[in-house]
């Protein structure tokens, strides 16, 4: 499977300011900035900003050029894995899903989704592993393994530009409420909640870091600090570490609920994976 890369022709000097330069890739009609107005009922924010907005012009430029964006190494590995036959069923992802550019154009923007058989939501990593174990007869990939990160990056990249939209009604509601609760609960020795940093002070600096709204539309993201791509749950864990709290496990129900709620807070933002971060 070929990975289609794009490069922005002119990098806008206004990138650091409030006026947004466009994305390198095509966005659906009506979505043309990294800032959207919150439309969801009872949304705590008026304006929603992608994390891209808060990064330095250099980091922003790296993300905008698919040839320079180091995250594409993972996207490319994912493209290879998409066509790699594995497991007792002797199938690849492509055997069922064919051309990912068509079949995965929205899935990456709509996770977590309700899974009737399991009676709980599943996020992208979990869905990939469900397909491996249930449909391919293959071993699930470990969380944060290079394979799972690559496949997540690849699938999410197919949904790039699609506005985030998650279901929170019906059986999802208790998960949503739990995520909201976790978001607002102070934890750790420093006694801070997600909301304290990402709602109260976005745009301001906490030591060397400029706080964003803690949106999820760029994940998995390539972090310059790690020289590696990382999952959303790894980021959650990092934020809990910072406040000296015992983090939940990656892939846990708690982080799944938090993911659902965080994605809802970013409803309408276009998927940007793989984003580049400091």
């Amino acid at each position: 499977m070929m990975v289609k890369r794009t490069k922005i022709a002119v990098l806008s000097a206004a990138a650091a300011g409030l006026v947004m330069s466009g994305y390198a890739f095509a966005l659906p009609e009506g979505v043309d900035t990294v800032q959207v107005t919150a439309t969801a009922k009872d949304h705590p924010l008026d304006e929603i900003y992608s994390g891209w907005h808060f990064r330095t012009p250099e980091t922003q430029a790296l993300q905008q050029d698919d040839f320079e964006n180091p995250g594409f190494l993972w996207v490319e590995q994912g493209a290879e894995l998409w066509e790699t036959v594995d497991g007792s069923e002797q199938k690849s992802c492509a055997s069922c899903h064919e051309d990912a550019a068509d079949t995965m154009a929205t899935a990456g923007a709509q996770m977590p989704k309700w899974n009737e058989a399991l009676g709980k939501p599943v996020n992208l990593e979990q869905q990939i592993n469900l397909c491996r174990s249930e449909r391919m007869g293959a071993k699930p990939w470990k969380w944060e393994s290079s394979e799972l990160l690559s496949m997540t990056a690849f699938v999410r990249n197919q949904s790039r530009g699609t506005p985030v939209e998650v279901q929170i009604g019906g059986p999802m509601t208790p998960w949503f409420e739990k995520g909201k609760d976790l978001y607002n609960t102070r934890v750790g020795q420093l006694d801070l909640a997600c909301v304290n940093c990402h709602q109260g002070y976005y745009g301001q600096s906490i030591r060397a870091d400029r706080l964003s709204q803690g949106q999820s539309n760029g994940f998995p993201t390539y972090r310059l600090k790690w020289q590696k791509i990382g999952s959303l749950h790894r980021r959650f864990k990092g934020c809990m570490d910072q406040v000296r709290a015992e983090p939940y496990k990656v892939g846990s129900d708690e982080f799944l609920a938090l993911e659902l709620y965080v994605n809802w807070r970013g409803q309408g933002l276009p998927v940007e994976a793989p984003a580049v971060r400091q």
């Binding site: 934890v187 750790g188 020795q189 570490d241 000296r244």
Partner: peptide, 9 residues
């Protein structure tokens, strides 16, 4: 201050 029951590492 010292906190109990809020997942302090």
């Amino acid at each position: 201050r010292v906190f109990d029951g809020q997942r302090v590492r």
